[in-house]
């Protein structure tokens, strides 16, 4: 912003101090409620500080012991793996159906009727309280719940399938709920991106005799890359924060045998049991993982493409 003194006008300078004044509420609240907590969190990660029964242990400074502990007991790796598995299981169908629906909605030849209705419906689950949605699925998929009863009546199963006692069952349910809650949102984002593509490209392709499939893979997909990237990064970061659904579905236990326990559920457990040292170390790890992953995905997708440039340009346009 070194734009030099355009006019050197003292009135302009007088106005510009208001920039600082208007920033005061945000900066103040940010410092108090986010910056200080972040520093305290990092600070706490270097201390032994937990409850042993009713007795408080610590806080004693122990350097990096919490970090060593959290890595060596295998929990961090396990819960990271769980979280990522459930994210991928939900994300793959999500991106698949979103691309498909986006392509159909923005296809001029197909002219999907009632597109407004369909968009309204598929976005609906996104606004539902995740805790309630998980509770609903818990009751519906319970051992004696409606789904099991129906499947037995139809003769699909001879006895109830205990969803929460199988890794595939509980992870599958979590992933399925995440898919339902997010594919509408992703569809709308991708569609807006598809609408932004220059229509003359499609016309030219049609004239050249390209099929819809060719148009999709040769034109739509490459041009959509910046938005796909954006969707993927935000979904990944959202996925690492996965909490409400598995927490309520499994009552915070991550059934079966903690195989659907996510990183944030693990953090939540430490916070409840007042194991602040471990909670601190875990938070710092999460902070780093979030940072690295978003950077990695970004780098990886940008590498052989000028997606970055496209994104910048589209941003300037906006």
């Amino acid at each position: 912003m070194a734009n030099g003194p355009k006019t050197g006008n003292s009135r302009v300078v007088k106005y510009n101090k208001w920039g600082y004044i208007f920033l005061i509420p945000f900066v103040l609240v940010y410092l108090v409620f986010q910056m200080i907590p972040l520093i305290t969190t990092i600070y706490n990660s270097f201390f032994e500080n937990y409850m042993s029964g009713l007795k408080q242990i610590g806080p004693n400074f122990i350097g990096l012991e919490n970090y060593k502990e959290i890595v060596s007991n295998g929990d961090l790796i396990n819960y990271t793996r769980n979280t990522l598995i459930m994210w991928v299981l939900g994300f793959v169908p999500q991106i698949f159906f979103s691309l498909l629906l986006g392509a159909w909605f923005s296809d001029q030849r197909l002219r999907v009727r009632c597109a407004g209705f369909f968009k309204t419906v598929i976005y609906l689950p996104n606004l539902i309280m995740a805790a309630s949605f998980a509770m609903l699925f818990f009751t519906l998929f319970a051992d004696s719940g409606p789904i099991n009863t129906t499947l037995i009546n139809w003769g699909v199963f001879s006895e109830p399938y205990k969803f929460l006692e199988h890794a595939a069952g509980s992870r599958g349910l979590v992933a399925f709920m995440n898919f339902l809650m997010w594919f509408g949102n992703t569809t709308i984002l991708l569609m807006a991106g598809m609408m932004g593509i220059d229509g003359s490209l499609f016309e030219a392709a049609q004239v050249d005799g390209a099929t819809s499939t060719q148009v999709f893979f040769r034109i739509t997909l490459p041009l959509l890359r910046p938005i796909l990237l954006y969707v993927m990064i935000t979904s990944l970061i959202g996925g690492l924060q996965m909490f409400d659904v598995p927490q309520v579905l499994t009552n915070g236990k991550g059934n079966p045998a903690r195989m659907s326990m996510t990183l944030i559920m693990y953090l939540n457990n430490h916070l409840y049991s007042k194991n602040f040292g471990m909670a601190g170390a875990l938070s710092v790890f999460l902070f780093i993982i979030t940072g690295i992953l978003s950077l990695l995905v970004y780098r990886f997708s940008v590498r052989d493409n000028n997606a970055d440039e496209v994104k910048k340009r589209s941003r300037n346009k906006a």
Binding site: V32, I39, L267, T290
Partner: peptide
Amino acid sequence: AVMMIPTQVTALGFIKL
């Protein structure tokens, strides 16, 4: 830059505060 930091990461410090 801070837009991407999940609120859960600072939860510990937040509770203490």
